[in-house]
């Protein structure tokens, strides 16, 4: 910046600009703190000794650092198997949801057919619907069919929960690949399947992976349906919820933190695609 004398009007204008910028930064940081601080605090608890957990006033950093609380939680009866169940359910949901949704997303994005709008709108409506509420009738049905309290029945429920979102996301990802790419591939000698595999798939793979991760997170987090559909084969949130009233603070803090960690990691990977997922609702 050139060093020259600025008249007062200029100086004020410049200062106002800088102030506003600084204000925006302050605001941005404040909001970030509002989100991060509670996570930090429960993290602190999760890595404190049991004495510190019941201490008052509370420390704001895990000093001394201790895995005692986490270990206590993980060694509780059923936690490990519930974690395994949760991962299994989430993976099953991810696979089912992606496999079923991808063709539908492709169809919505690429074909014009009678009923396309109706189908898309009903998917939209289903997504807006509180699907977990369907857990009650499904639980009753699963009992009748002998499918109650099974890992895969929770996954079936979760797939119904995630399917509409996945369909819409996948279709928006496909829409972002110009149809001309596919047509060019066909002109240069691919059939429809080859054009899809060689040109479209590599381009949409990241988007579909993001949507799959999101599916995983949704399933990992879901508690209502999982609680209703299981008794012995609880998923992690279901187990924690069930034991909440009879559990210690250690259990709650460590459990809360343990459930929260995957989202920290997964959201990082899919942050670019978040707008793909929700942005297209209005379009």
């Amino acid at each position: 910046m050139t060093t020259r004398a600025l008249d007062p009007v200029q100086r004020r204008a410049l200062r106002q600009r800088q102030l506003r910028r600084a204000g925006t930064y302050a605001l941005a940081t404040l909001i970030a703190l509002w989100i991060l601080l509670p996570i930090w605090l429960i993290g602190t608890m999760a890595f404190s000794t049991s004495r510190d957990i019941y201490a008052f006033p509370k420390q704001i950093a895990p000093i001394p650092f201790s895995t005692e609380t986490m270990e206590f939680f993980l060694n509780q009866q059923g936690i490990m198997s519930a974690t395994r169940n949760s991962i299994l359910v989430a993976l099953l949901t991810l696979v089912l949801s992606t496999l079923i949704a991808t063709p539908a997303g492709y169809a919505i994005s690429r074909y014009f057919f009678i009923g396309r709008d109706a189908f898309r709108l009903s998917v939209l409506a289903v997504r807006a619907f509180p699907i977990v509420i369907l857990a009650v009738p499904l639980a009753v049905t699963f009992i009748e069919w002998g499918m109650y309290d099974r890992v895969y029945s929770v996954a079936l429920m979760h797939t119904a929960l995630t399917l509409p979102t996945t369909i819409l996301v996948v279709s928006s990802v496909f829409t972002s690949v110009p149809r001309e790419f596919e047509e060019a591939a066909k002109v240069f000698g691919c059939n429809a399947w080859q054009a899809f595999m060689r040109v479209v798939l590599p381009l949409v793979l990241p988007g579909i992976a993001a949507s799959a991760i999101f599916t995983f997170v949704m399933s990992w987090n879901e508690v209502f349906a999982a609680t209703l559909l299981t008794i012995r084969n609880r998923t992690l949130p279901a187990l924690i919820l069930y034991q909440l009233n009879k559990s210690s603070l250690q259990f709650q803090y460590a459990g809360g933190f343990f459930m929260l960690v995957p989202s920290l990691i997964f959201i990082f990977f899919i942050r670019r695609y978040l707008f793909n997922m929700w942005g297209q609702i209005t379009k």
């Binding site: 909001i31 970030a32 989100i35 991060l36 996570i39 997170v217 990992w220 987090n221 879901e222 508690v223 949130p237 924690i240 919820l241 809360g256 933190f257 459930m259 929260l260 995957p262 989202s263 920290l264 997964f266 959201i267 942050r271 978040l274």
Partner: peptide, 11 residues
């Protein structure tokens, strides 16, 4: 800002 998207209501 997006982190809470992945946090369950229980957590």
């Amino acid at each position: 800002y997006a982190i809470p998207l992945g946090i369950s209501d229980l957590a």
